[in-house]
Design a protein around this nucleic acid. Structure first.
Ligand SMILES: [Zn+2]
Ligand SMILES: [Zn+2]
Length: 517
DNA sequence: ATCAACGTTTAA
DNA sequence: TTAAACGTTGAT
């Protein structure tokens, strides 16, 4: 069941060793004293700044110790970045950047020049220190990355913490034999999935990280009313000159807004809060079929906005905007499926009503308390399929989670158990399906129906994890108003009927849809 | 969507 | 106490 796709790619941090960036101007040595506030923000109008031709010299001043520190840290963290920090390349990141640049061109020359002059070179030592402190505290964000060509391009690696900021990653191996993220608590919010604090505390050797991460997560998930703080790392944040020409600058006295060119990219993002926290299943499987790095989600179920994933102290970017009852996210060589609990509740709902239903469900599912799931470890790759994930029968799932405590936990668990019993009663076992699948991958020709067997997906159909799907007869798109099969299409000679919860209409009657058929 | 205005929080 | 600036609201 998949619809839109997004890309998860390793982010190649651009190396931009710009002298301006690493060389801190020593303003005090400058004969020209510009009017600055405590933060070093030049508050004089740009026109004034430009009148002083020496203003530029302030920015290209002698290197200070701060520069050395910054450079050294940059080198160290660059190492960490390239090897350890996966960050998605946001498709809209480029767009945003582009938008920003368009905005720039719209401005008059003065603003542009101000942008050119605006380099981080005027950092105080203290500022540099603060920046570094924050860099090690804050998790990296791709929004500040990949802005090569921009005068204000900031090397991501410059912004990252050192190797020791990722203690878990420092140990060799990591993603080899077992799943590198040990099972724990995850909290799902519209902004992403977060490791619960309790789970985080289990993380060995991450003590220092814990508090920093704790801050982030608590701020992100707990109280949405809290004022967010600028990241301090993104290009706008690194600007220190008010343009004095944008609406915010012009309206400063009454508007109390930061210069538009200095507005933090993070703060521009809508604060996560559109949707309520939602119980999810997490299914973690190795990325076998996803060599392209694409994730796919279905339509019409629920929604997850872009956001930060924090797994075991590592941060990952969830790129794009997913809508579906499950969302696959590539995490390193693994794929994490976030399965929205609400799907259970409207399996029989009509397509047209689905969204509305979801809204209700989401509300219903949003108690004040945290909704979290336990990530449980399956004993065997061949473990029983989960109700929502027949793929388990294909042997791909190494870990999966079940809801252990949430408002809907009891209900859904009982439903799941019931379905489980139903399944065991006999019709269509998952393991059987997987075995048949193995045969099928060798046999059938694309596009040819293979009654009772498997066939490759026709063009335009969603690929099953292995690229095949059991198919009793012929593939047909679902008619509207009927529950999609896990992969969205199903052949039913007798015509389509609404499914009873969790079942497929098949020639021999209804079968549980999660065991293959 | 952008803007202006205001209240409010935050850190210095 | 003060300056900076986030969040919100209401008008356009
Ligand atoms: Zn401005
Ligand atoms: Zn920022």
């Amino acid at each position: 069941m998949s619809g839109s796709g997004g890309l998860m790619e390793g982010n190649q941090a651009r190396e931009e060793e710009d002298a301006r960036d690493s060389c801190c101007g020593d303003e005090d040595s400058s004969p020209v004293v510009e009017r600055r506030n405590r933060s070093g923000i030049i508050s004089t109008p740009l026109s004034k700044s430009l009148k002083h031709s020496r203003a530029l010299s302030q920015y290209i001043a002698t290197c200070s110790a701060a520069a050395a520190v910054a450079t050294a840290t940059a080198n160290a963290s660059r190492l960490a970045q390239s090897a350890l920090v996966p960050a998605g390349v946001k498709p809209n990141s480029a767009a945003t950047q582009h938008r920003a640049q368009l905005g720039l061109t719209k401005l008059d020359r003065g603003a542009l020049v101000s942008g050119l002059l605006d380099s981080p070179s005027g950092l105080h030592l203290a500022q540099a220190a603060e920046l570094l402190r924050r860099a090690s505290m804050l998790l990296p964000d791709s929004s500040g990355l990949g802005v090569g060509g921009d005068v204000e391009a900031v090397s991501a690696s410059d912004s990252l913490g050192s190797m020791t900021d990722f203690p878990l990653l420092s140990s060799a191996g990591g993603v080899g034999a077992g799943f590198p993220f040990h099972p724990g608590l995850f909290i799902m919010t519209p902004a992403g999935v977060f490791l619960a604090d309790s789970a985080l505390s289990q993380v060995t050797g991450a003590s220092e990280h814990r508090q920093a991460h704790g801050e982030v997560t608590s701020a992100a998930s707990a109280n949405g009313k809290k004022k967010r703080k600028r990241c301090g790392l993104c290009p706008p944040c690194r600007r220190r000159i008010n343009c004095e020409q944008c609406s915010s600058c012009r309206n400063r006295k009454t508007g109390h807004q930061i210069c538009k060119f200095r507005k933090c990219e993070e703060l521009k993002k809508k604060p996560a809060g559109g949707l309520e926290p939602c119980t999810v299943h997490l299914v973690i499987v190795p990325v076998i079929w996803s060599t392209s790095g694409r994730w796919e989600v279905d339509s019409g179920r629920w929604t997850v906005d872009s956001g930060q994933w924090t797994l075991d102290g590592r941060q990952w970017e969830f790129q794009g905007h997913g809508t579906g009852d499950h969302i696959d996210v590539v995490v390193g060589i693994y794929k994490v499926m976030v399965i929205g609990e609400p799907a259970r509740f409207y399996q029989q709902a009509e397509e047209s009503k689905r969204k509305q239903a979801v809204r209700k469900i989401m509300t219903k599912l949003s108690p004040v308390s945290n909704l979290f799931v336990h990530v449980a470890r399956c004993q065997s790759p061949r473990s029983a399929p989960t109700p929502t994930h027949p793929q388990a029968s294909l042997g791909n799932i190494r870990h999966y989670c079940s809801i252990s405590a949430s408002t809907t936990g009891s209900e859904s668990n009982s439903a799941a158990r019931e379905r489980e019993r139903e399944r065991e009663r006999g019709i269509g076992g998952g393991v059987q399906a997987s075995e048949r699948g193995a045969e099928a991958s060798a046999g059938p020709q694309p596009g040819q129906p293979s009654p009772g067997g498997f066939q490759p997906y026709p063009r335009g159909f969603q690929p099953y994890p292995r690229g095949f799907q059991p198919c009793p007869r012929v593939f047909q798109p679902y008619p509207r108003g009927f529950l999609p099969c896990p992969r969205g299409f199903l052949s039913c000679p007798g015509g389509f009927q609404p499914y009873p919860g969790g079942f497929l209409l098949c020639p021999g009657g209804f079968l549980p849809y999660y065991g293959g058929f």
